[in-house]
């Protein structure tokens, strides 16, 4: 599965568009890591546990989107957008959406 965030797939020709596909996930860290992040916050710097949380969740959202595209029989997803929203406290929603397409062989 090729995923791009431009309207085409460079080097390949798009044969058909299959419509919008999307995947989202809402995640939170357990309280222990939240408390750890608070102490890290005292001195500043990167909060690794949160970076990890966000990238894991983003990968999960992309995976769900990819699964939906596969079930439609797509070869690639173009024009993918990623969005993040805080729901409350440590919980974050990550959304990935794009257009599923088939490619000429």
């Amino acid at each position: 599965m090729i995923i791009t965030n431009i309207e085409t797939v460079p080097g390949r020709v798009i044969s058909a568009e299959l419509g919008l596909v999307q995947g989202s996930t809402v995640r939170t860290k357990h309280l222990g890591k939240d408390i750890g992040a608070f102490f890290k916050n005292l001195v500043g710097g990167e909060l690794h546990s949160y970076t990890e949380l966000m990238s894991e969740a983003r990968q999960e959202a992309i995976d769900r989107m990819t699964e939906e595209a596969k079930s439609k029989g797509a070869d690639a997803i173009v024009n993918v957008r990623l969005a993040t929203a805080s729901i409350s406290g440590g919980a974050a929603e990550l959304l990935a959406y794009g257009t599923a397409v088939t490619l000429e062989k």
Binding site: P10, G11, L42, L47
Partner: peptide, 22 residues
Amino acid sequence: EIDADTQGLIDCSIVLSRDLFR
């Protein structure tokens, strides 16, 4: 004309904080 191979989407993020005293 793009003469290139597509390697796919890449996404990288960072969560950065500032110390509480500042």
